[in-house]
């Protein structure tokens, strides 16, 4: 079985994101970029499934500019086998990403797709669900446990009320939560080895998919900032303030 894992290149989660003064977007110049955090969990899970003997190849797919190759390399250094970059310099919405993934699925025929549950830049939380609907494969979203049996899998999902378990038939598509596993670090020898692993670069135009955005960004603005409040000396003062100043208790 082949596993297809999608990885998105995003501003690193530790960076304090700044809105550009002209309202056209956020500052991306000289900003540290990394793999979208839950995508690391997706890569890790794929590696574990392969190590358990249930898969024999892990393909990493990223959609975006040339530099996404770095993100793919990171996944290859963790242990994935090869990469595909669908190249475009334009912003690609989840709708288009799901169409591109479906196209790659036609070509590669994987038995399982793992994605992150949410990209931490656009915070959309859509792509896995859309891809599932397009392929007509079952979806296992917000997965914090994936147990693969012969022809099906039991998934533990993180839902607002707690945890839910579902059983899905293979092939299926999962969107991974950060609690799914602890992603490994790439060792130095594996980083070296990853340099020789193949990445197939396909311009998006070659796929014959309409990727024109449907949503227009009118403006990107800074949220209202909170006034820094006061420090209180002790608990007694805190309670007095809450009772008589803020009047919330």
């Amino acid at each position: 079985m082949k596993i297809l894992v999608t990885v998105k290149r995003v501003i690193d989660y530790n960076v304090q994101v700044r809105v550009k003064a002209d309202g056209t977007g956020v500052e991306k110049e000289n900003v540290k970029m990394s793999m979208n955090p839950p995508d690391e969990n997706a890569v890790e899970e794929a590696l574990r499934i392969k190590e358990s003997g249930k898969a024999d190849e892990i393909i990493i797919l990223s959609i975006g500019e040339e530099k996404c190759q770095e993100t793919i390399r990171t996944a290859l250094a963790m242990g994935a086998d090869r990469g595909i970059l669908v190249k475009t310099n334009n912003e690609i919405e989840p709708l288009s990403v799901s169409k591109i993934v479906s196209k790659i699925v036609e070509i590669e025929n994987p038995g399982l797709i793992l994605m992150g549950k949410q990209a931490i830049d656009d915070d959309s939380n859509q792509t896995a669900q859309m891809t599932s609907a397009l392929l007509n494969w079952p979806q296992a979203t917000f997965a914090s446990k994936i147990e693969i049996a012969d022809n099906n899998a039991t998934i533990t999902r993180e839902v607002d009320e707690g945890l839910e378990r579902i059983k899905v038939k293979m092939p299926f598509i999962a969107s991974c939560d950060l609690r799914l596993n602890e992603p490994r670090y790439a060792s130095l020898p594996n980083i070296m080895k990853a340099k020789k692993k193949p990445i197939d670069v396909k311009p998006v135009e070659e796929l014959g998919i309409d990727v024109k955005p449907r949503i227009e960004n009118i403006k990107i603005s800074e949220p209202a900032s909170r006034q820094k409040g006061v420090m209180v000396a002790d608990v007694a003062e805190l309670v007095q303030k809450l009772k008589y100043e803020a009047k919330v208790i």
């Binding site: 656009d122 859309m130 397009l134 979806q139 979203t141 607002d160």
Partner: peptide
Amino acid sequence: ANTFGKNVMPRVAVKLDVAQISD
């Protein structure tokens, strides 16, 4: 935009071939 709606609506959007506006 909670785990219930997030789970269903992107499927609806893609089937109608429209982008979803989240959250």
